[in-house]
Design a protein around this nucleic acid. Structure first.
Lengths: 190, 190, 190, 190
DNA sequence: TATGAATGAGCATTCATTCAT
DNA sequence: AATGAATGAATGCTCATTCAT
């Protein structure tokens, strides 16, 4: 019998290490060696679980995407207000910032890959669906406007997340909250 | 007698070629050789006018940033409405999309460089100032709210520009206009 | 109770798989993994039966050498004419071509290994002995000439086998037969 | 002005070094590093003049092929007898043996490459043409038989060259001459 | 007996950089 | 001012080998 390992768990560990490396060093500077070192294995182990670097990177991107979505869903499930839930998902600590940085990388990679673009689009529309649901229930709002309101909120969240991930110093949580709440006020016509 | 060349013009040509290369191939894949080829010179010429690759890249980023700002200013000077002016600046053709892609690269680079981060921040606040001015004049709006409205619009424009640069197919100009106009409606309380 | 396996049979199976792999992919491209896959086992099993890759390769070379010789001996035992027997041994189907390709590899390996060179030499002289016997019986031929005739025939067979193994399209069986028969005619003075 | 070098001469030097390396170490063991070292340059220089390893190898193969042909042609031009000329071309010293070893490698490579196979075939037919011409002039020999005689001689020369390249110790020049002269005697019906 | 996880050395290749001309 | 030859470090990747199970 071979050494017993959980193949999927192993892949997940390496994917998480890769996400870290990508966030810290950028997608090109994140070498197999640095990814392996973060995961505490050798480069050979990485190529044992992934066919090539693209494969590792893809796993890292999906890993971070999934993590971001989970964070938002968890917050909503806990019954927090949309604003609070979104603030939970925005880059406010090491982990969430890391995921936003990886998400940026995902977007960049999507520019030059048909396949990643479709993944990216799918992920985007899931965000939009969640937002549309979370914002539902306003009176006297046409479905078209409801959709546009959701797009508006998603756009603002994206912009805040991007800006805060790039320059955390310029976007403390209070600034994030203040802009997000203003957005909600404008959307609700207050 | 040495050959007479306009040093600055030469640098600008190469910077523009580098911006093109970065947008087309990504910052890492854009090699000195490919940049030189686009500019119609040899790698030696590039290193003659720039100290190293970072220097070329910086020039390319500033070049594209400048181009985007000019486009917006020009549109406003022509007396176009804020919405039309912003749509002019958003990625609607090869050139504007290219500049947005370079802007993304700029943002990425700012993540890991103190110097670029300060440049990036300055560029962002110029956008915000322009937006604040362009949107000014609403009655019964407190200065704080005016500032937040401007931030909101800038955020939405950033998000649209980003999304459209990444996935132009998903963001035809009509969609850009429709979301932007909705944003304005909400801001003006219609 | 340990699983019961026939050690020698197991080695033979793997050696045959290795011969196949070497003929198909070349000696360097034939990896332990690809050899194991052809044999329907894991790489661990291969290293269990052989000390290292060189050992597997050696077994494959001897395996193919043995197969070629058997094919010639069998044909002669069936009472076929020397020409027909040799044509049987030449590369005329998948199997015989494969063995010739492995034989080439054997020769290559012999260039850089004292040990393989001696094996190779022994194998060559067995061919020569067989040929000398098969061609024996001409009248008025001195023993020296008989030996040279045999060398001549072996040389021609080697050359045909080589050429046909390398470029089967250029060496259909008719061409092989025609050259071989011409050789015999010249040897017999017709 | 750049450093002035003769591009073609540079390529030829590296190709010769590669031929040496291939003969000494085999095609796979001949690394770019070892080739570069033999040529007295760095690996970067090799890739500067050749697009990749395949390209270097091809140049080496053609280089050796050309050298062998030249050697035969030169001997014939000097008015030597066919036998003497062929013996000149056969592996009798370091250089000629090296070329025969590279020729073997060429043949091997031709097995798996359509392109090399066509090159190989062309080279083979040039040998045959030369042989046909050199042997021409026998009385009472039909053209068909003349062609077959040439094929026979070429086959024997190939076989001797191959054997002598692989195992020089077993094929001193006297043995090469003796078999080749016997071949000629049989062809001429003595 | 047999597995396949893990290693790490070695490869071809790419590329920013230097520099003789 | 401009060239492009040459360098050499670094990368992704392959693979024989080892070994815990």
């Amino acid at each position: 019998m071979p050494k017993i390992v959980d193949h999927d768990e192993r892949r997940a560990t390496i994917a998480a290490a890769a996400a870290e490396a990508i966030a810290d060093e950028g997608i090109e500077q994140a070498t197999l060696k640095s990814i392996a070192a973060r995961a505490g294995v050798t480069t050979g182990a990485v190529t044992h679980y992934f066919s090539d670097k693209d494969d590792v990177v893809l796993a890292a991107l999906l890993h971070a995407d999934e993590a971001m979505r989970s964070r938002l869903d968890a917050a909503l499930d806990l019954g927090r207000s949309p604003v609070d839930a979104l603030l939970d998902a925005l880059p406010n600590d090491e982990t969430s910032r890391r995921d936003w940085l990886v998400w940026r990388t995902f977007s960049d990679a999507a520019i030059r890959s048909e396949f990643l673009r479709s993944q990216h689009r799918r992920s985007q529309s899931q965000w939009l669906d969640t937002a549309t649901q979370a914002l539902a229930g306003g009176d006297g709002v046409t479905p078209d406007d409801a959709r546009l309101d959701a797009e508006l909120v998603v756009a603002v969240v994206d912009a805040i997340g991007d800006a805060a991930a790039i320059d955390p110093g310029a976007w403390p949580i209070e600034r994030q909250r203040s802009l997000l709440e203003h957005c909600m006020r404008r959307v609700h016509g207050d």
